[in-house]
Amino acid sequence: MTPEAVGPLVAEPATGTATPVPRGARRVQWTVWAQRYGALATLVVLFVYNAIATPFFLTPQSLLFVLLRQAAPIAIVAVGMAIVIGTAGIDLSVGSVMAIAGQVGATLVLHDQPFLLAIVAALLVSAVCGLFNGTLVARFGVQPIIATLILFIAGRGIAQLITGGKLQTLADPDFQWIGLARPFGVPAQVIVAVVVAVVAWLIMRFTVFGRYVLAVGGNETASRLAGVPAARVKLLAYVTSGVLAGLVGLIAVSANSASDANNVGVGMELDAIAAVAVAGTPLTGGKVTVWGAVVGAVMLKLLQNTLIAHGITKEVAQMVEGAVIIAALWLQRHEA
């Protein structure tokens, strides 16, 4: 039963004195452009600069195995974060979820379980973490910062409890495919990141769920009154973020050949939020740019690497990163 529009409607032209608000001056146009493409432009500038100034930058080794391989985990988490932020939420728990997923996967493999089971179990546990966050936000109406803060605090403790905080070393090529393999000479995690980004982009652009995320983030009450299942949409957003974080947890553990609950994913929430923010996604919700999150992640990584390559300390690079985030925000301010 597909409803078609009502038949003959009023044919008479409207007489309202409606005047669309004029879309204004050139200055606004410029900031809109900067906001949308600022991160990309910065990335291009950094890329060109490095291509000229940095020896061996334009080699697959440098691009694929340093830059993209480092940026891939952040990009994956940032994609999930972007969707959550699109619903006007935030997910601070991603780092802890990474640690939990890594521990679960590693522990199962070390206990001679099949690697597939370990991966599935790890992702399921991550989904449960997302469900926990989502339930607090969607069903109980807890503010997202606080709801996910709970798991942020408790999650790392849970991860540490799994093995009593001990480092577990791994050697299972099947399980570690995602972190170590190089199909077609490309690091597996880069491939995974590209797949995640493309799928997320398709979902956000073409599916009803994608529209619903934007609607809920833009105005939740109105969405609900229009029949949008707002609670379910938010729940799903947090589960997505949780699963993607879990996936990155597995990548981290695999790539290190060790599961270290104390350090896996520390600070990841900040990196991911920064990646989303520099690419012009407003943190107030209602907008999601998946490619922006990816570009933001790569850009921040390249910026950091460039600075460090020029003898600037990691600490100063961190300060520059902070300044870049502020600049991105300042550009965003012009919207709305």
Partner: peptide, 23 residues
């Protein structure tokens, strides 16, 4: 003055100030 959201501003200074302290 710039009317930026506190959450992100202080997130950025969290990064930057730790860098400064370490430096």
């Amino acid at each position: 003055k710039l009317k930026l959201p506190p959450f992100i501003v202080t997130l950025a200074t969290l990064l930057a100030i730790r860098g400064l302290a370490l430096t």
